[in-house]
């Protein structure tokens, strides 16, 4: 069984319980299927105006957070500004 088939098999398993498993900043989280990125950010407790999001290595423009549906296996990086030199 190739990696593609394994991924498909996993995806169908995940969808059975109606949730999607995602990685956010290296931490695993489960969210209901169909969750939008905007909802995910709200769920985590962040102000979308203060962060930038990368989804599977692609920048997600802030204006599209509401339109992006979180998919099982997505990897997110959510960053902000901190003190630095």
């Amino acid at each position: 069984m190739g990696p593609g088939l394994i991924r498909e098999a996993k995806a169908s398993l995940m969808s059975l319980d109606g949730t999607a498993g995602v990685m956010i900043n290296g931490e695993h989280r489960r969210v209901p299927s169909g969750t939008s990125l905007a909802q995910l950010i709200a769920e985590v407790g962040l102000d979308p105006q203060r962060v930038a999001v990368e989804r599977n290595l692609e920048i997600v423009p802030r204006s599209t957070f509401g339109e992006v549906t979180v998919e099982d296996g997505d990897e997110y990086e959510i960053v902000h500004f901190v003190g630095g030199g």
């Binding site: 900043n25 407790g45 962040l46 203060r50 960053v79 902000h80 500004f81 901190v82």
Partner: peptide
């Protein structure tokens, strides 16, 4: 002012942020 880009701490999302103390509208980040 120079600033760094780092992961948000998603375990403690309500931590104070730099932008609360140094206003990016007044000082160029």
């Amino acid at each position: 002012v120079t600033v760094a880009v780092r992961r948000v701490n998603i375990s403690d999302p309500k931590q104070p942020m730099l932008v609360d103390f140094i206003d990016p509208k007044k000082v160029t980040y």
